[in-house]
Design a protein around this nucleic acid. Structure first.
Length: 279
DNA sequence: AATGAGGACAACCGCGGTGTT
DNA sequence: TAACACCGCGGTTGTCCTCAT
């Protein structure tokens, strides 16, 4: 013979908890402490099963819980731990006092996943999303618009993408090539400018250098000859983001972007090889 | 103002490990 | 040792809210 069943599920209430139920549960647990969840609903006067009570308490009513959005520091911690532990939410939550596994899981699914994808990082693997193969030769070339379509249609092409994802490579749409008119009007570095002496990086490649080394710049709507330095992907990636945000990479304080840097450097070789194939 | 789509989050479901009888 | 319940976990669903049309 085993244990007694935890509760008779017939006649038990389900769905959202009312304020009155919360009050009963909190009052009971604060007075009696956590003991046997099976007994809690009966003793607290609730028409809920013990499991539901436990969940409500641990995820919402516990007095030591933090409420509200995760801080940037907490998000950074979650990402780092997820890279290490995977979807072990309870384990991750144990590193964040006052946060629950459910809360972290929800935050991951609704916020962090999107942010990482938008930055070109696969949230499942924490590696850069794979670039797609180059366009087929029979694709119509010519108009800038046609070129744009080819780029956007092909780059996200890996089946792993959901339709609502914003793949990193989509940002290629926003690249301003040397010779194109629109440099950011506020003087922020262009897509090609890798002149980042302040970053401590060894890379240094300016827009003017790009224009000269690629034979005087590109024709509108065509891919320019890519200088070798463009294969230096981590920095180049930052510049793609830069075009959209209008900020230089080293200005970012967002932990996600810090993380992006780390992730990209970790996989720089993969990226370089992929991009050589792509171009 | 009505309504539909999408986002956010609380709650539920089902499974595996562990404990109890 | 077998049978069963408890507990905790991760995945999924349901509901509410906001925003765009």
């Amino acid at each position: 013979m085993g244990r007694q069943p935890c509760c008779d599920k017939v006649g038990l209430k389900k769905g959202p908890w009312t304020a009155e139920e919360d009050q009963k549960l909190v009052s009971f647990l604060l007075n009696n402490g956590q003991c046997c969840w099976r007994a809690v609903p009966k003793l607290a006067g609730l028409l809920r099963c013990g499991k539901s009570c436990r969940l409500r308490w641990t995820n919402y009513l516990r007095p030591d819980l933090k409420r509200g959005m995760l801080s940037e520091e907490e998000e950074k911690t979650v990402i780092e731990l997820h890279a290490e532990l995977g979807n072990r939410w309870s384990n991750i939550a144990s590193h964040l006092p006052g946060r629950t596994d459910n809360e972290i899981k929800n935050h991951w699914n609704t916020h962090i996943k999107k942010k990482l994808r938008k930055m070109g990082i696969d949230p499942a693997t924490h590696k850069p999303l794979q670039p797609a193969p180059p366009p087929l030769p029979q694709d119509p070339a010519g108009s800038p618009e046609a070129e744009k379509i080819v780029v956007t249609a092909v780059t996200p092409g890996h089946e792993a993408f959901c339709t609502d994802d914003v793949p990193m490579a989509h940002l290629l749409d926003d690249i301003v090539f040397p010779g194109d008119v629109a440099a950011p009007s506020d003087g922020v570095t262009t897509a090609y400018s890798l002149d980042q002496s302040s970053s401590g990086s060894s890379s240094s490649y300016s827009a003017s250098a790009a224009a000269s080394s690629s034979g005087g710049g590109s024709v509108d709507g065509e891919w320019p000859d890519l200088p070798p330095m463009m294969m230096d992907w981590p920095e180049s990636m930052w510049q793609l983001e830069d075009v959209v945000t209008g900020r230089t990479p080293w200005e970012f304080e967002d932990p996600f972007l810090t993380y992006q840097t780390t992730a990209l450097f970790d996989h720089q070789e993969t990226w370089t090889n992929s991009m050589i194939e792509l171009f």
